[in-house]
Design a protein around this nucleic acid. Structure first.
Length: 343
DNA sequence: TAGGCTCACACT
DNA sequence: GAGTGTGAG
């Protein structure tokens, strides 16, 4: 190991709110009669998004209109090239979310349909002894846990959650029944038990902070539904990357918590494209390598120096430090801060 | 040296 | 597609 291995503290708590099929939901707000019908939003000749009824028929994002109509002859198609309506709803979403996480929270917009919220401070406040975890908890299977352990050992990478000074201080499921379950109940008994299993406890207090954050997430999602009528998926974890990946695990209209001690078991087998900042170009170049680099574990084993060479060969002018950042993220370590007022 | 501009690239 | 944001130069 030639490069300093990533430092992982679990002190931050980051939420990612991701509006389900955003443009389609905006249209359904104006046309409730479309809610139970297959609906696609087009720009030029492409379906840019579609509701979950349409997805059941095989309609997909960025599919040609032709394909979509073949798969779903009764598809309702709306032109979405005028974005003004969507921008307005997007700002309403952002303004609702700004009320959550307390005065110290930071909110960052990503495109029109995603918002990161750093709720570290609110999650630290110790007003509830045993906060209940809301929504889903990601649980790696034993094989994935073993694979992550092997990868860590290979790279001599020790997770060091020994808290630093700061942390130490302290379906379209839009039917009503679904709502009550997802917002009002805690995680399933199995999830809750797993969260408290001795071997999975981390002594820095991240479980409690994430559980508190999961409650904030549930309250915010409830507010978005009541005040705007939108369903969102949410990821709860300790970095932007992990929150984003977590949000994708249960969709639509669900929230998922990812404990940092489970992150590598989830990330190691995923394609390199899950790493923020690693786009189509770099991912393709990585696959051309011999042996090819497909997964985050492949990239982690590759190391920083080879990645630097590949970036120089692939990109016109690779930003300084990009190789190191991407490599650290391949080990589920993402230090990118939530940047406030990005919208 | 600070700003403004374009470009490539990534993100939705 | 229809944008926005970022870093390099």
């Amino acid at each position: 190991a030639s490069m300093p291995l990533p430092e992982v503290s679990h002190k931050r708590v980051v939420l990612l709110f991701d509006c389900d099929c955003f443009y389609a939901q905006c249209e359904m707000l104006e046309h409730p009669e479309w809610r139970k019908k297959p609906l696609a939003i087009k720009q030029k000749y492409l379906v840019v998004t579609c509701n979950y009824v349409a997805r059941k028929s095989g309609v997909r994002k960025l599919q040609s209109l032709e394909d979509a109509k073949l798969r779903c002859p009764d598809l309702i198609i709306v032109d979405g090239s005028d974005l003004t309506k969507y921008r307005a709803v997007s700002m309403r979403v952002f303004n609702v979310l700004k009320r959550f996480g307390g005065a110290a929270a930071k909110h960052e917009r990503l495109g029109m349909d995603e918002v990161f919220v750093d709720v570290t401070r609110a999650a630290e406040e110790d007003r509830e002894d045993e906060p209940r975890l809301m929504g889903h908890l990601f649980q790696p299977d034993p094989a994935a846990v073993r694979a992550a352990r092997t990868l860590r050992a290979e790279l001599n990478f020790r997770e060091a959650p020994a808290a630093d000074a700061k942390a130490e201080q302290s379906d379209s499921g839009s039917e009503d029944g679904d709502w009550v379950r997802d917002y009002r109940e805690t995680a399933s008994p199995d999830d809750a038990k797993a969260a408290l299993a001795d071997e999975q406890l981390c002594d820095c207090g991240c479980q409690k902070r994430l559980a508190r954050a999961s409650k904030i997430a549930a309250e915010a999602r409830m507010a978005l539904f009541k005040e705007i009528g939108l369903t969102v998926s949410c990821g709860v974890s300790t970095s932007k990357m992990l929150a984003k990946i977590a949000a994708g695990l249960n969709k639509p209209n669900k929230q998922t918590t990812l404990l940092p001690q489970h992150a590598l078991a989830l990330v190691h087998a995923l394609p390199t494209r899950v790493i923020p900042g690693l786009g189509f170009g770099v991912a393709s170049a990585l696959r051309e390598l011999h042996p090819p680099v497909f997964t985050c574990a492949d990239l982690a084993r590759e190391g920083v120096r080879p990645l630097e060479r590949l970036l120089r060969a692939t990109l016109k002018s690779p930003p300084a430090g990009l190789a190191k950042d991407l490599w650290q993220r391949s080990l589920a370590c993402d230090t990118d801060a939530v940047k406030p007022f990005s919208g």
